[in-house]
């Protein structure tokens, strides 16, 4: 679906934002592009959506070199930016209708899209009266209006409350089910962990690691279990014990704790994506 080989980009003025990165995205995959601010992820996305020209390297999208695409590229590609960009004097419905009329292929009804992100009742409200979260949801859903094969989403859950954030993640999973490929730029490791099939870490313009969140957790996590327990009938504080995950069933001490105490929590010591990012890049995400 999308392959990037030895991509570099230098801004006018000489700042090299991307330094020879390589990655490929399969059809129907949700690919997370993770990195702190200034790492080069937005530059990479701008190159991929043809906003920035003059890159070095080879990019192939939908079977065709990127520099051979014309404006028909956007008939098959949907883009949602990090900041909302709507006509503030138009209503939500009018905004979607306007953008819908710019595509020549099959498109979705604005009402259906608004319902998808819980904005149906605000269809006739001017955008100037929308909160940032509402504008973000509209931003996101606008990128789906022409049923694109490939979606480029920049921080799609930023500024959303947990309920609406979950709604967006559910829609993304549904889009994946329908066969769409999604390139997701984010610094939110939780979102990436929950919905991405694979993630790439980018730091200082270089991709340092690409794998599935599960593999990364397994590779970088500690294979241990932590148990928090409490002696029944005593006023002693909660205690904690840690055991190796391998051979756990044969650990008499572990089994004894389970049998004789009130267990409060049991957790495997999987690393979070954020831990792995810090561990592998030596950098934090902020």
């Amino acid at each position: 679906m999308l392959s990037v080989e030895n991509l570099s980009y230098t801004y006018p003025g000489g700042a090299q934002a991307v330094r020879g990165i390589d990655f490929a995205i399969e059809e129907g995959e949700i690919f997370g592009f993770l990195g702190p601010s200034g790492a080069g992820k937005s530059t990479t996305q701008k190159v991929l959506i043809r906003l920035l020209r003059g890159f070095q390297g080879r990019i192939t999208v939908l079977g065709k070199p990127l520099n051979q695409w014309d404006d028909s590229y956007y008939e098959q590609v949907g883009v949602a930016f990090e900041l909302p960009n709507h006509y503030q004097k138009l209503t939500a419905s009018e905004n979607l209708s306007l953008f819908r009329s710019l595509y020549s292929g099959d498109t979705l009804e604005p009402a259906a899209l608004l319902e998808m992100v819980g904005l149906k009742d605000d269809a006739d409200t001017r955008l100037s009266q929308f909160s940032k979260g509402m504008q973000m949801r509209l931003n996101f859903v606008r990128s789906l209006i022409h049923k694109p094969d490939l979606l480029f989403l920049d921080e799609p859950t930023t500024g959303l409350d947990p309920v609406n954030g979950q709604k967006i993640k559910d829609i993304l999973r549904q889009q994946k089910e329908e066969g769409r490929t999604i390139f997701l730029t984010t610094h939110d490791m939780t979102v990436a962990d929950q919905i991405c099939d694979r993630v790439a870490f980018i730091v200082d313009g270089e991709v340092t690691l690409i794998d599935s969140p599960r593999n990364l957790r397994l590779q970088h996590g500690r294979r241990r279990v932590t148990v928090e327990y409490h002696h029944d009938g005593t006023s002693a504080p909660t205690q904690q014990a840690e055991f190796p995950l391998d051979g756990l069933g044969d650990s008499d001490e572990f089994l004894k704790i389970l049998r004789t105490n009130r267990i409060e929590t049991i957790h495997t010591q999987e690393a979070t994506l954020e831990d792995i990012f810090i561990q592998t890049t030596g950098r934090s995400l902020t």
Binding site: D71, Y74, E75, F81, L83, N85, H86, F99, L102, S104
Partner: peptide
């Protein structure tokens, strides 16, 4: 000001 120019040019509109 409203950044709609970039939104438009991310459609088939040049």
């Amino acid at each position: 000001k409203d950044r709609t120019l970039v939104a438009l040019t991310s459609t088939p509109t040049s």
